[in-house]
Each structure stands twice: as structure tokens, then as C-alpha cells.
């Protein structure tokens, strides 16, 4: 599914958080949103979930104006905070969110178990989430996002607090999902992760400073590191 954002602007009060963003996320592509805190990454993701409405511009998913119920069925959203119910078990969290996407019976239970197994929580599935560590909650949140096999993944800093081994496994999974034709938008601070995306968008104070393939962006840097590009972009943004 293709997500097209056209001339999106969003303000909270007098503060403009996003300014004139035009962007396309394509099927079979991981699009990375890069930028410092307050750059507008989370706001952009919340606009695509339908949680916020743009002040100007529009978002379409597969040519149809968003939000609409059909598109919402295709979205797997992982917010920045864990956003799981601490007084439910990990398994019950999955059952709850699965039901909202129309899963039921054996299919629901199987998908919940598969998702738990993939994030390595099958042994702790009956424990209350309040007894989980920060990393376990993050893994559960990811399992909730993926369990209904969405076509679009909106992941707001999905690997924060996750150990390097699991982080690698998660990114391998994202790559596998991409190859299946999913549209994936990931926001991150981690430049190493951006290298694994097909395209990266650099945001600074609500403005889109770069939007290109990671290969092209890397070629723009003398040292061949996206981090360098990020600092250059920051300076350019400040100059603006």
C-alpha cells in the first residue's frame, strides 16, 4: 500500500510542528524518519494513524483519503511509549488487540502465540505486564503491532531499550516483512538503523531537510556516514 502525504502542515497552538511536508512511502519499502527530539517525527506518524488531523494538506492510502476504516484495518501502529495494559497478561493484551482487528477463536490464539514466540515472550505470556521489564514491554508492544499481519507498519522508535541481539532480529524481521510487500515507516534516532532503510527523511524543527534513498544520502557525505549528514543538516536547518 502506498501512503502519500501532500503539503502537510500541523501546528499545536502557535507552534508549527510540521511545515509543508510532501512525502510518499511505497509498498515494499522501509522509510526511515530521522531527526532530533521535537523534529516532528512522532507528529508525522500520528497523522498517518489518524490520531491527528493535518491543518493543511492531505494523506491518501492507496489513493483513498485517510482516515478511513478500511485503511485502519491495514495499519499496525507501535507508539513510542509501550501502550500496553499493565494489569493484563502479555497474552491477554494480544487477544484484546487481535479482537479489534476481527481475529477470533483458534486463529486469534495462534496468531497471539506466534507473535509472542517471535518476540521471545512465550514463557512469560501469562505474567502480568506490570511484572515485565522495560525491554519485555517494548517487545510485547511490537508483537501487538504485528500480530494481525498489517500491510502498513508505523513504528515510532521501535527498538529503544532493546538489546543488540534482539534489535538485529527485529530488523531482520522488518526486512522480511518489506520483502513481503509491506509499507514500513520507522522513526529512529539510531543512524545505524537508518542504513537498513531504503529511503530516509531528515526532519528538523518540522521541516523536511532531506528525502532520498539512503544510498544517495550516504553519497552526499564525505565520510560516508548518515550521522555526519545529520549534523550537516542540523547546521543547515539552524542557518535557515
Amino acid at each position: 500500500m502506498n501512503i502519500v502525504m501532500t503539503q502537510i502542515s500541523k501546528s499545536f497552538g502557535k507552534t508549527e510542528v510540521l511545515h509543508d511536508i510532501t512525502l510518499t512511502a511505497r509498498e515494499g519499502e522501509i522509510l526511515c524518519l530521522l531527526g532530533p527530539s521535537g523534529a516532528g517525527k512522532t507528529t508525522l506518524i500520528r497523522l498517518i494513524t489518524g490520531g491527528l488531523r493535518p491543518d493543511t494538506g492531505e494523506i491518501t492510502i492507496n489513493g483513498r483519503k485517510f482516515p478511513n476504516m478500511e485503511a485502519l484495518r491495514s495499519i499496525g501502529f507501535m507508539p513510542q511509549n509501550d501502550a500496553v495494559y499493565s494489569d493484563l497478561s502479555g497474552y491477554d493484551n494480544l487477544l484484546f488487540f487481535g479482537r479489534l482487528f476481527g481475529l477470533s477463536g483458534v486463529e486469534l490464539r495462534n496468531k497471539a502465540n506466534d507473535a509472542l514466540s517471535w518476540v521471545g515472550l512465550e514463557k512469560d505470556k501469562k505474567k502480568l505486564v506490570s511484572q515485565y521489564s522495560g525491554g519485555m514491554k517494548k517487545r510485547l508492544s511490537l508483537a501487538v503491532t504485528l500480530m494481525h499481519n498489517p500491510s502498513i507498519l508505523l513504528l515510532d522508535e521501535p527498538t529503544v531499550g532493546i538489546d543488540p541481539v534482539l534489535r538485529k532480529s527485529i530488523w531482520d524481521r522488518f526486512e522480511a516483512l518489506r520483502l513481503e510487500g509491506k509499507t514500513i515507516i520507522v522513526s529512529t534516532h539510531v543512524m545505524d538503523e537508518a542504513v537498513r532503510c531504503q529511503r530516509a527523511v531528515l526532519l528538523y524543527e518540522g521541516r523536511m531537510i532531506e528525502n532520498d534513498t539512503t544510498g544517495n544520502l550516504l553519497a552526499k557525505t564525505a565520510g560516508g556516514s548518515l550521522e555526519e549528514l545529520f549534523f550537516t543538516a542540523n547546521k543547515a536547518g539552524d542557518a535557515v
Binding site: 500520528r46 494513524t49 489518524g50 490520531g51 495499519i75 501502529f77 507508539p79 501502550a83 495494559y85 476481527g102
Partner: peptide, 11 residues
């Protein structure tokens, strides 16, 4: 906790 936001991103 953000669960309402997550809930509202479902159908």
C-alpha cells in the same frame, strides 16, 4: 499510558 491512542489507531 498511550493505550487510548493505540486503540484509536485500530478499526
Amino acid at each position: 499510558t498511550g493505550t487510548l491512542e493505540r486503540l484509536m489507531a485500530t478499526p
